[in-house]
Amino acid sequence: MEKRSLYNNKLLPYLLLAPQLVITLVFFYWPASQAVWMSFRMEDAFGTTTEFVGLENYVSLFQQRAYYESMATTVIFSIAVTFLAMSFSLLLAVMADKQIRGGSVYRTLLIWPYAVAPAIAGVLWLFMFQPSLGMIGRGLISIGVPWNPMLNGDHALLLVILAAAWKQISYNFLFFLAGLQSIPKSLIEAAAIDGARPTRRFWTIVFPMLSPTTFFLLVVNIVYVFFDTFGIIDAITHGGPAKATETLVFKVYQDGRLGGDLGGSAAQSVVLMVIVIALTAIQFRYVERKVTY
């Protein structure tokens, strides 16, 4: 069936879209095009003049060993955070869905992490896991784990992964819970009568029915780990020790802001943008097809 517009005014749809378009233009396309423009230019040593250098920024970027290391860190970081944030929030949502009566308290508690600013979340985790002061850090050391995220790169990476996942769980949880509650109860009952035990019910009915939500969250979470985890990393490790937690987005900041290499940093952000757009496109092309029913 075709949906027909109730309005004959040709201008109205554009007018209604205008605020959204203006915001996107001003806050996304304009800075993005600035970044692209800057990536083709290089500043002189004093930052007073710039000149057009073509692809030179990109060439030197892809010759840096550190850039590939940062990429590897990002891959580990994003897979771990996405997987942890999604699986754990799904588990919590399933539990909350069962007991939704007492759910409002539970839900409020779970929403808090999302409302906490990344820097504060970072400091919180840093503090908890601080080897000499933090509760968990001291606990780990007292049971013989040589825990030290300040010096050990792996520990540091683990800590930012946990913190970043924790920050995203609330968001995922809300969507999973809404998704779970929109599954008609009669489907679950029919499956129960059809002899499916709870675990089997989950994997054969609930999980497939949730797949549009899961897919949506997958896209959102990947964008989150690529871009929005900057604050947490900055607060906990500043990308260290020895660049062990320097993800691509953190490197953009590090090189541009602290290193003063605006052109190189712009080139990095363009690459980052391309990666995320490509990832999202792939997901829409191949995954979305399988999740609609």
Partner: peptide, 14 residues
């Protein structure tokens, strides 16, 4: 050992 037919049929959509 029962079977039930629901008002909304409750067919598994996927």
């Amino acid at each position: 050992d029962i079977a039930m037919v629901f008002q909304n049929y409750a067919l598994y959509p996927h």
